[in-house]
Lab assay of single mutants.
Amino acid sequence: NKFNKEQQWATYEILNLPNLNEEQRKAFIDSLKDDPSQSANLLAEAKKLNDAQA
């Protein structure tokens, strides 16, 4: 299913963002699990935070 693929991709991407700390990473991944339909939005937020902390 589409959300499952998006969720897996977003999880992979978030795990590989270098500037997030473990707590932030875990929070994003927990949110992905809670609502896979928000995968794209959550990934965008994670990338923004990652860039802000660069």
Rank of each mutant, 00 (worst) to 15 (best):
D51V: 11
D51I: 10
A10E: 02
K26T: 10
P18M: 08
A54W: 11
N21E: 07
A10Y: 11
Y12M: 08
K48D: 06
E23H: 10
A46F: 02
I14E: 01
E13W: 15
D35G: 03
L32Y: 02
T11E: 12
L20F: 01
Q7T: 07
Q53K: 04
L17R: 00
E6N: 04
F3E: 15
L42F: 11
A44V: 10
R25M: 05
T11Q: 14
A10R: 03
L42Y: 11
N41M: 13
A46D: 00
N1I: 04
E13H: 14
N50G: 02
E23K: 12
A27K: 09
N41K: 14
P36V: 04
S31I: 06
S39N: 05
L15M: 13
P36F: 05
A10I: 07
A10M: 04
Q24D: 04
N16S: 09
E23T: 09
S37F: 07
T11F: 15
T11S: 09
F28Y: 08
N41D: 09
L49T: 06
E22W: 15
L42T: 10
K5A: 12
Q8S: 04
L20I: 08
I29T: 05
A10F: 10
D35F: 13
D35V: 06
Q38S: 08
K48Q: 09
Q7M: 14
D35N: 12
L20M: 02
A52E: 12
S37A: 07
I29W: 04
T11K: 08
K47D: 02
D34A: 12
Q24K: 02
A40G: 11
N16E: 05
A46M: 01
D35H: 12
L49Q: 06
N16Q: 06
L49D: 02
K33A: 13
N19A: 09
L43I: 05
E13I: 15
E23M: 14
N50Q: 02
L32H: 01
I29G: 02
A44D: 08
Q8E: 13
S39E: 03
E22I: 09
Q7I: 07
P36L: 03
K33F: 15
K26Y: 09
Q8T: 08
A54F: 09
T11N: 05
K48G: 05
E6R: 02
W9G: 03
N41V: 09
D30L: 14
A46L: 01
L20R: 00
A46I: 01
K48A: 05
K33G: 09
L32D: 00
L20D: 00
S39G: 05
K33M: 14
N1M: 03
S39F: 15
Y12Q: 08
L20Y: 00
N50R: 01
E45K: 14
N41I: 12
N16Y: 04
F28T: 01
N19I: 01
A40T: 09
L15T: 09
L15P: 01
K5W: 05
K47A: 05
Q53L: 06
K47H: 06
F28H: 01
A40W: 15
L49K: 04
N21H: 10
P18F: 07
E13N: 08
A27I: 12
A40I: 11
E13K: 12
K5P: 15
I14T: 01
Q8F: 08
Y12E: 07
S37T: 09
K2M: 15
L15G: 05
L43A: 09
N4M: 06
S31E: 07
K48Y: 09
E23P: 06
A10G: 02
S39R: 05
F28D: 00
L15Y: 09
P18K: 09
L32N: 01
S31N: 10
P18R: 10
L42R: 07
T11D: 02
N16D: 04
E13M: 15
D51H: 10
L32Q: 03
L20N: 00
K2V: 09
S31A: 11
T11P: 02
S37L: 06
N50D: 06
K33H: 11
N19M: 08
N41A: 11
Q38V: 05
K5H: 07
Q53W: 07
D34M: 13
N1K: 04
D34L: 15
P36T: 03
R25I: 05
K48I: 11
E45R: 14
N4E: 15
N41Y: 15
Q38I: 07
L17W: 01
L17D: 00
I29V: 06
N16K: 12
K33L: 09
T11G: 03
